[in-house]
Each structure stands twice: as structure tokens, then as C-alpha cells.
């Protein structure tokens, strides 16, 4: 059984159907990029995958013991967050909340998970710094460490490089790629089609007139890739 199996999924946003009869699968170890124009339903699909939105019809099934609250989600940053007074450690360990039920305090095991993920992302020296004093790239690393605390299997990244400069963006992509090679499945929503082609092994391309799902090579041959490149549009 695949890690995630989506069958004939239909989702609406404010009573307008934005996704119709969508089907795709994510296998363990995949790096799936979801690309598409603004308004093509990417954000709605993310909400669906996170079980924050009920499907009108169709199903989203999780396999291999993945529980629906065990997705390492990296949301788009809000402006309020950028100036938030919180230490890096406080932010990262808050990713462990889903495994804790109603117990009020963090256990030593959770503290270790947080510290391990801080080290894994190379931000150990920032551990006691305030989140609001960090650069955009450093903030994304902190949020990624938090997401890794919430999951052992799957990362879901929603346009993670928005607002980062090209060098930091490239570093961030390398980091995601490394995490993927360490065995964590990655789903990334992105506008950046060239990054999708470079790092992903599967692509889900969403357009108003329909969708494409398949491997990178198939995608390159399909009309969807041509439209994406030729149109010069925000894809």
C-alpha cells in the first residue's frame, strides 16, 4: 500500500469546486512536487491532505501506519510570525505536541528529538536566539526542524522558498533533498517548476482544464510541461 493514495478526490473552496476527480499516489521515499497556477487548488489540496477539509467525494487514504496528525507540515509564514518573541528551541519543540496527548510538559525524549533535529539542520548555534532576530532562511530552517519533530515519514512543504534570495533558496532545496535521501517522503507545493524538475521524482501539475500526475520524464514530454515553460506564466 502506498503512503498516501488519493482517489477521485473532489474538493470545494467556499462552495466553488476547485478540484475535481483528482487521483494520485505517493510512495514511501518519493519526492513529489505539486505545481500549478494561483487558484488551481493547490492550497485546497494541502488542506485536504492535512484533513482540515472534508472531501465532497472521493477518498484520501494513508498507508504504512501514517497517522493523519503525523505529517510534518511547513506552512506559509504569516507576517505576525516574523516578529514573534520565541526562542528557536521553543519553536522547534512545539513540533512534538502531536505525540503528547494531554500531558502538559515535554518529556526528556521529546527534548532529545528537538535537539537532534536542531542539530540535523545545522542551527545548533541559533538554539537560544530569538526567532524574530533570524534571517528568512534561518527562520525556514527552524520551521523545518519543527516539522521534522512532528513526523518520521512525511514532510509537506507549502511554497517554502517564498521570499528567500536565490542562494538561500538553492541551499534550502539541497537540504530538503538530503532529508529526502535519508528516507523521509517529501511533498512540496511550489511555483518553481525548474526546482521541481531538478529534485522531484514525481510531479502533480494542476491547471484549470485538468491535471497531470506522473514521473519527471513523462511530465517533460507532456503538454503540461510545454504550457508551463512556453506560457511564461506564474506556474
Amino acid at each position: 500500500m502506498a503512503l498516501i493514495k488519493v482517489d477521485d478526490l473532489t474538493l470545494s473552496y467556499e462552495n466553488i469546486m476547485v478540484i475535481k476527480d483528482l487521483s494520485f499516489k505517493v510512495e514511501s521515499g518519493d519526492y513529489l512536487c505539486i505545481v500549478g497556477e494561483n487558484g488551481s487548488g493547490k492550497s485546497t489540496l494541502v488542506k485536504g491532505l492535512l484533513s482540515l477539509k472534508k472531501p465532497e467525494s472521493g477518498t484520501i487514504e494513508f498507508g504504512e501506519g501514517l497517522r493523519k496528525n503525523e505529517i510534518g507540515y511547513l506552512p506559509q509564514q504569516t507576517s505576525a510570525q516574523k516578529s514573534f518573541p520565541a526562542s528557536v528551541y521553543e519553536v522547534v519543540i512545539s513540533g512534538c505536541l502531536n505525540s503528547r496527548g494531554i500531558r502538559p510538559f515535554y518529556s526528556s525524549r521529546e527534548k532529545k528529538i528537538a535537539l537532534d533535529n536542531i542539530e540535523r539542520l545545522g542551527i545548533t548555534d541559533l538554539k537560544n536566539r530569538s526567532y524574530r532576530d533570524l534571517s528568512g532562511g534561518q527562520q525556514q530552517r527552524v520551521l523545518l526542524a519543527r516539522a521534522l519533530c512532528a513526523t518520521k515519514k512525511l514532510l509537506l512543504l507549502d511554497e517554502p522558498v517564498t521570499g528567500l534570495d536565490p542562494i538561500i533558496t538553492a541551499e534550502f532545496y539541497e537540504l530538503i533533498s538530503k532529508i529526502n535521501k535519508e528516507g523521509i517522503t517529501v511533498i512540496m507545493v511550489t511555483h518553481d517548476i525548474s526546482a521541481a524538475l531538478k529534485y522531484a521524482n514525481r510531479v502533480l501539475c494542476m491547471r484549470e482544464e485538468g491535471w497531470f500526475f506522473g514521473g519527471i520524464d513523462e511530465f517533460k514530454k507532456s503538454d503540461f510541461a510545454n504550457l508551463a515553460k512556453g506560457g511564461g506564466k506564474d506556474v
Partner: peptide, 13 residues
Amino acid sequence: FAITFDESFAKAT
């Protein structure tokens, strides 16, 4: 803390 810092993440987990 989790909800104040990031509602979307807290909801998702």
C-alpha cells in the same frame, strides 16, 4: 504557545 505561534501548524498536527 503552539497555537499562538502558528495556528495552521497546530491545526495540522
